[in-house]
Design a binder for these strands. Sequence first.
DNA 1: TATGAATGAGGTTTCATTCAT
DNA 2: AATGAATGAAACCTCATTCAT
Lengths: 235, 235, 235, 235
Amino acid sequence: MPQAQRGKVEEAGMTGRWRSAVPSREEQHALKRRAVVKEAGRAFGRFGFHNTSLDDVARALHISKPTFYRYFENKQALLFECHTLALDLGEESVAFAQRNGATGLDKVLLMIRHYVAVYARELGAVGIVTDFHSLAPEHRRIVQKRRDRFDRILRGFVSEGIADGSIPPCDPRMVVSCFMGAINWVPVWFSSAGPRSGEELAEAFARIFATGLQSATADAGKALSMKLSPSPVTS
Amino acid sequence: MPQAQRGKVEEAGMTGRWRSAVPSREEQHALKRRAVVKEAGRAFGRFGFHNTSLDDVARALHISKPTFYRYFENKQALLFECHTLALDLGEESVAFAQRNGATGLDKVLLMIRHYVAVYARELGAVGIVTDFHSLAPEHRRIVQKRRDRFDRILRGFVSEGIADGSIPPCDPRMVVSCFMGAINWVPVWFSSAGPRSGEELAEAFARIFATGLQSATADAGKALSMKLSPSPVTS
Amino acid sequence: MPQAQRGKVEEAGMTGRWRSAVPSREEQHALKRRAVVKEAGRAFGRFGFHNTSLDDVARALHISKPTFYRYFENKQALLFECHTLALDLGEESVAFAQRNGATGLDKVLLMIRHYVAVYARELGAVGIVTDFHSLAPEHRRIVQKRRDRFDRILRGFVSEGIADGSIPPCDPRMVVSCFMGAINWVPVWFSSAGPRSGEELAEAFARIFATGLQSATADAGKALSMKLSPSPVTS
Amino acid sequence: MPQAQRGKVEEAGMTGRWRSAVPSREEQHALKRRAVVKEAGRAFGRFGFHNTSLDDVARALHISKPTFYRYFENKQALLFECHTLALDLGEESVAFAQRNGATGLDKVLLMIRHYVAVYARELGAVGIVTDFHSLAPEHRRIVQKRRDRFDRILRGFVSEGIADGSIPPCDPRMVVSCFMGAINWVPVWFSSAGPRSGEELAEAFARIFATGLQSATADAGKALSMKLSPSPVTS
DNA sequence: TATGAATGAGGTTTCATTCAT
DNA sequence: AATGAATGAAACCTCATTCAT
């Protein structure tokens, strides 16, 4: 995987050279930088920020550790970049939903579908949403702010849905936390190399949060009200 | 990573989780041991295993760091205990669902409700599901095995639901990963000190995964098929 | 410091105060104390001072660690006691040699034989001669002084032997270091449970340092001068 | 001494070879590695493994503690290396003796002389023979095996000597333990900075174990049998 | 008296980060 | 530009030693 990554980078650099006599330094730099982000992000998402040493990342990219510092001020800067990327994707998804959704429910579902799809595509880079607390304080503040805004908008979608009748009365915070949890958990288990594509995943998630798991034909409401009655925490 | 946020567990410990009632000798040992697990688990879940030093935990419990080693062989053993606890709760929930659920859907929903409720109750102690990769290899193997079994059963519930008609055709793996992700994410954001109780949370989650977000009156199916059509990954 | 010292003082005081009828308590104390010295000394000699924790010693004696401190001020006091014991035996051997030896050679050999025998008998307690550097500084100074005196006397024996013709000219320091090394090494390998008794060992050592390894019949002197000629360090 | 050590290393590295002005990377690494072994070995031999902290060694070498880990996996690995070195020298000495000795006695004496000389030359590096029990279990097993083989060969030399008449009947195990003890004890007291060279030491030891301490003219055998008669352990 | 519990001091080890080539 | 070497900071852990029962 790292090998492939590296291959791509070099190839891209070559092509640049052949086409225009001088490959711009900055382009090369940007390409390598991106390669580092992707590889590190993938590792962070998979094993966790602290379980991934720079040595690991460097080894995977076939570069040396000091080289790393040509591209990032420090390890935490890299983590910040990953978070930033994830938030970019989230905001993009939100914007997409706002553009294309009519009702509140529409927006929520479009957002979920879009985000999951893009999430699955970029994957590793965003898997680290988990490691929020490893961010440097100043970075953390920035990310926190964007996250808050993000959540506020999502809860707004839900509220909107309740208002326009597309979503039944509920606590928006819980609803949002529920589906965002499901989404954030994706990198823990999903692999694009698996039997399902990211698109399928997005579709499935959207459907689940749209209609739930119950069969349309079954009189699920009744079954539920009956079966869930025994207090579940009687252990 | 000095700047990274440290577990601010002290606050929670102030209430005196350490110094409590004084029962017998062995019971006391067990009680203290459990207190360590809960406090550490809470911190691990909130800040991450590596962002929580034993010093933090010790300070929160008003004990010294070495004292810690009277109760656990090492830090990873504690993490393992947390995982074990989480898995115990999960299996208990599964058993509960198997006892009380009629259809596949029933079992899934009962399991979700039970698990979320118990999860929220014990909270911190199970938050560490995230830090699977910080486990010692031999512990990891054990946890992996139990997890696999757990997932298999859950997927079995879904398959059963498809077979008995209570759940429409779908990929069980995706469905299970979806709601387990939502559940595992809970400790990241939920606080029992917040406006909602664990019971309410459990209820809300069960409902979401039962009927989805759409209003019963709305012709959601149609809206969905129309609105979700544009390729969402056009970034 | 000198638990021994302290003990003596108290004992003297006791005797003065209560005149007679010493309760068996003190005897018990002395017995247990000796048991601790023997067990710890054995372990120290076998595994080394630092590879033997007080937990180990306590476990071996079926007592608890704090109990240990009823008998010794600290771990190093115990080590000091062992050294003291070893030196006592050494000085006793020296005195024996001085009393019974006629020539310098006699004294050396008698000393070796006596010391080895007694050494093998007490064994563990003296095995720690090795761990001189683990002594507390103030103890180390005391031991050093006695050791110096001890060595000086032994070298005196050798010098005496050279003077009286019983030992051929040589460097006394080397000779003494040679046989003392052999003796000090005994506890590393010798076990009184083995096929040889301490007496046999003492006899064998005395013989080796008396006549060497060469057969009396062989013209070893010549063989040696010939065979040893090639520079041995040509590696 | 550390200063001197370091000086040597740098000198060797700086001045380099005639052939290639600068010693290759690997050579430098090897040189420094060896410097660490020598210094650590010296310290271990003098003060004991546990009385020598890595801080001490680092300070002596004018490096920082973590630097150490570029050359050795951990402290025990260094100890193992010391043992390995000592065994290498021992086996080399054995081989030398086998090549150059005619009788069993020859072999024993050549071995002693060679080993002591080389031992004194490399000194510190082998002083740790004492700290066998501080080895990691897997290392200990390896060392034990080599030691057994080594001892077996030495006892073979003695047996051979008895068979060919160059050594009088005796217990080979005791004899070997005797002179190996004397040798292993050397680093405890010998300093190459002292008045005697390693060669002189080797010569002296060989002579002692060849002909013993008795003067050639004296009728030592008789003196011994008479003088040693009183039971030496009558304390 | 004797012991389970607790801790301070100190050592080994890791790792992000800088230095020097 | 890129890398092998070096290090400061901080974490985990051990153990002799004391506290409190």
